[in-house]
Amino acid sequence: MKNKLRILRAERNWSQGELALKLGVSRQAINAIETEKHDPSLDLAFKMAQLFQLTIENIFDPEAR
């Protein structure tokens, strides 16, 4: 699913490892989500929204697959 994770991460100057640590997942998971090879669970999507203080729709765009 298309998403703005890479942009949001870059804006905060975080590495994939740092973001992974904050979300409690692996670096590979962050990379897979950023490259649209893995759709996160609802639980992880909420965690991301909370971390970036955005709504899920502001991070993910299900229409633009």
Binding site: S15, Q16, G17, E18, L21, S26, R27, Q28, N31
Partner: peptide, 14 residues
């Protein structure tokens, strides 16, 4: 290996 260009070393968990 896990993240090309990684600045932080791998964690205990990794």
């Amino acid at each position: 290996e896990l993240e090309p260009g990684a600045t932080l070393p791998a964690s205990e968990e990794e």
